[in-house]
Design a binder for these strands. Structure first.
Length: 465
RNA sequence: GGCGACGUGGCCAAGUGGUUAAGGCAGGGGUCUGCAAAACCCCGAUCGCCGGUUCGAAUCCGGCCGUCGCCUCCA
């Protein structure tokens, strides 16, 4: 079985063959850092984190680059409102992003380029594009000559004539063609700017990704990722720039796009004002809960978000963790142990098949739950020892491949002795069959968020979600 | 208006030509338990609608209805 991925460029499932195995060059579009990141950004980050984890699990060595757009209209506007330098504002949110990387258990990218730090490379790329006839200068602006690039529209499935007909953008008369887009914008008063051969100015939005790709990963890359909302025009323009610049086709072999996170049936976005920030989510829930939400549907489909899916994920997480509870017996042989081992093998095989099929995490997760049930059944049957440990190790291994930690929330250490003391007293009461009192302690603790369970091995407790 | 995606049990969600349509959540009934909890077992869908292709379709084709995305900054 080989890994197949859906390629937006060809609109089909293709066997995954990197240019230079085992290396995989992966570039993922990161956020424009002008405000707090929301869970839509987090979804994209988690999706490509899982892609990376699975590739690495399959033996590939991934070089992972994610950019920060720190020079942009919205950043400048926001910074002016706040009366601080634009790059300071950007830096604040970049810092927050790194905190999110940690909190969401994302594998850090190997490089985090930002526009403001690759200006010379961008200028060089624009110069080459001008020299090759793919760009032209107008009053200190530089535009990309879209019609010059054969194949424009191949990613988004549009053709230049349709685009022109549907163009609703205000036409800038200075451009040769309404479709042409800015590679370099002449400085306006009050804006950050850099010196260039065309006068002071700043880069257009699309050129940064082409430049970063080229300077950090080379002429061609294996995987380019981002949200579906970036397909047009951003990624289309990126292809035009990079392929015109290097002359190498294709710029990216596999284009992967994640669907949009939706709140109340609409895309979560700043402009619609229907967003939940990553901080807000993490204040209420664990990172695994969010990841479970993302994993539970296919990454290319829109992901509906509401209190219901969050509550489901909370419970589902508890179930997964339940599979990690210790064995009650120690039988290593017999039908039950053999059945468990067979299940482990079966689940692993199906898990891989699902993930190999364009990262079908929802299907893969279903198999993980099947493993959980197999483990629970075996535990009830008294299986322990090596077969049981192996099953649980497999459960953790597969969960970790998806980026799920499955760690129990650490209890505040200072309350533990009190809880354990109460449990001791209650156990004494139970021995004396003082049920009413014993139940009162249990109910009281339950109300405080501590769940008690009486097992043959004694009473165990855990925090309720 | 153009391009594209999706519509599976109460909710979420896999499955894209052929065994009994995964799995999670919720619900009902059991086992276990002093009672619970957890766990385990059992119960529930013919796959938006209509038509077509086929020995056979949720799965392919066409039409319709509905939802969403892109076409403008956006993960």
């Amino acid at each position: 079985m080989t890994l197949h991925v859906y390629n937006t460029l060809t609109k089909r499932l293709e066997p995954f063959k990197p240019l230079d195995p085992p290396w995989v060059k992966m570039y993922v579009c990161g956020p424009t850092v002008y405000d707090k990141a929301h869970i839509g950004h987090a979804m994209s980050a988690v999706v490509f984190d899982v892609v990376r984890r699975y590739l690495e699990y399959r033996g590939y060595r991934v070089v992972h680059v994610m950019n920060f757009t720190d020079v942009d209209d919205k950043i400048i506007r926001r910074a002016n409102e706040l009366g601080i330098p634009p790059l300071d504002l950007a830096q604040r949110y970049i810092q927050e992003w790194f905190e999110h990387v940690h909190a969401l258990n994302l594998l850090p990218a190997h490089y985090y380029p930002r526009v403001s730090l690759v200006i010379p490379q961008i200028i060089h790329m624009v110069q080459v594009l001008i020299k090759k006839g793919y760009a032209y200068v107008v009053d200190g602006d530089v535009y990309y000559r879209v019609r010059k690039f054969r194949g424009y529209g191949k990613l988004s499935g549009r053709n230049v004539d349709e685009l022109r007909a549907g163009a609703r953008v205000e036409v800038d008369e200075r451009k040769e063609d309404p479709l042409d887009f800015a590679l370099w914008k002449a400085a306006k008063p009050g804006e950050p700017s850099w010196e260039s051969p065309w006068g002071p100015g700043r880069p257009g939005w699309h050129i940064e990704c082409s430049a970063m790709n080229y300077y950090f990963l080379g002429e061609q890359i294996d995987i380019h990722g981002g949200g579906t909302d970036l397909i047009f025009p951003h990624h289309e323009n990126e292809i035009a720039q990079s392929e015109a610049f290097t002359g190498k086709i294709p710029f990216a072999r596999y284009w992967l796009h994640n669907g949009m996170l939706q709140l109340r049936g609409e895309k979560m976005s700043k402009s619609l004002g229907n967003l939940v920030t990553i901080d807000e989510f993490l204040q209420e829930h664990e990172a695994d809960v969010f990841r479970l939400i993302v994993l539970s549907s296919h990454y290319r489909k829109p992901l509906g978000y509401d209190e219901g899916v969050v509550a489901d994920a909370e419970k589902a997480l508890q179930r997964l963790r339940g599979g990690l509870r210790p064995p009650m017996g120690r039988a290593e042989e017999g039908d039950e142990a053999a059945a468990l081992e067979a299940q482990v093998r079966d689940v692993r095989e199906k898990f891989l098949a699902a993930m190999d099929d364009d990262f079908n995490t929802a299907g893969a997760l279903g198999h993980v739950f099947t493993l959980v049930r197999a483990i629970n059944t075996a535990r009830d049957a008294g299986v322990g020892g090596r077969p049981f440990a192996w099953a649980q190790a497999t459960l953790l291994e597969l969960a970790h491949t998806l980026g799920l930690e499955l760690k129990e929330e650490a209890a505040a250490a200072d309350v533990v002795p009190f809880i354990e003391h109460l449990i001791e007293i209650r156990s004494e009461l139970r021995k004396q069959k003082q049920w009413a009192l014993a139940d009162r302690i249990r109910d009281r603790l339950n109300a405080l968020g501590v769940a008690l369970e009486d097992t043959p091995q004694g009473t165990v407790w855990r925090w309720k979600v």
